[in-house]
């Protein structure tokens, strides 16, 4: 969950969820007497448990085939492992009174590709995403998400390659309205300067929110301009 304030700035104190670019764990081929199939199956074991599961730092052994069938009532850590490969990234608008509104849900962010070394050729990779995910069923599962927003306006932020620190900065926000109605677009630009050597926030500049209307099926380039004195 990512939380934003009404000026579209990230609320750091609420944004503790973390998605790593990749994670490595193990599968061990074992038989589990406590599972109904009673046959050998790959079991997930994580030798780098990153979060507490059931009060201790360990993950698994968790059956891969049970995970694929969303049978999460079996030991060990099935719900946790399931979330690390099927989770969605939800963006929330947080109002001053504490109410929250769901802005956007990004699917297929987590566990987008799951691979291991091929058994037949050690120099080849084997894509085992389908061992973990029932790809046909994923749309049904996500359809249950409460109050799904209509994401019918696409945005693409275009950056010029030749921008230099100290220049007038012009960014182009390309918006495309895919709906059959006029949509009101609120653009809020926040520019933050971060020291790359100390990973420290130096300053932030927030531009006032601009409103514009975009007709049905239309697209438009919205220029976002920042003068040097506004960010230096």
């Amino acid at each position: 969950d990512i939380h934003w304030d009404i000026k579209q700035r990230p609320l750091k104190q609420l944004n503790s969820d973390l998605i790593c670019a990749s994670h490595v764990w193990n599968e061990c081929w074992m038989r589990r007497d406590d599972l109904s199939n009673g046959e050998h199956d790959w079991q997930i074991i994580d030798s780098t448990p990153v979060l507490m599961c059931d009060g201790i730092r360990r993950t698994g052994p968790c059956s891969v085939s049970f995970l694929k069938n969303s049978e999460l009532g079996f030991r060990w850590d099935s719900p946790f492992v399931h979330s690390t490969i099927n989770g969605n990234k939800a963006h929330w608008n947080v109002y001053p009174d504490g109410n929250m509104e769901l802005l956007d849900v990004q699917e297929n962010i987590v566990g987008s590709k799951i691979i291991t070394r091929s058994l037949t050729n050690e120099f080849e990779i084997e894509d085992i995403t389908e061992n973990y995910k029932n790809l046909m069923k994923s749309s049904d599962r996500n359809g249950n998400f409460v109050k799904r927003p209509n994401n019918d306006v696409d945005f693409e932020l275009k950056l010029s390659d030749d921008m230099k620190f100290g220049d007038n900065l012009t960014l182009q926000l390309h918006a495309t309205n895919k709906s059959n109605e006029t949509r009101t677009i609120a653009t809020a630009l926040s520019l933050c300067i971060i020291s790359s050597s100390h990973q420290k926030l130096i300053s932030c500049y927030d531009q006032p929110i601009q409103l514009s209307n975009l007709g049905a099926g239309k697209n438009e380039n919205i220029p976002l301009k920042i003068r040097p004195e506004q960010y230096m």
Binding site: V24, V110, I115
Partner: peptide, 30 residues
């Protein structure tokens, strides 16, 4: 990185005990 090394060590130990083991990498989109 360290994460992969942990997995490699666990696989070595597992195989030494006769339990087939493989290393799995999960990629998340940015």
């Amino acid at each position: 990185g360290t994460n992969w090394q942990h997995a490699a060590i666990l696989c070595s130990l597992s195989r030494a005990l006769g339990i087939p083991c493989r290393i799995v990498t999960i990629y998340n989109a940015a």
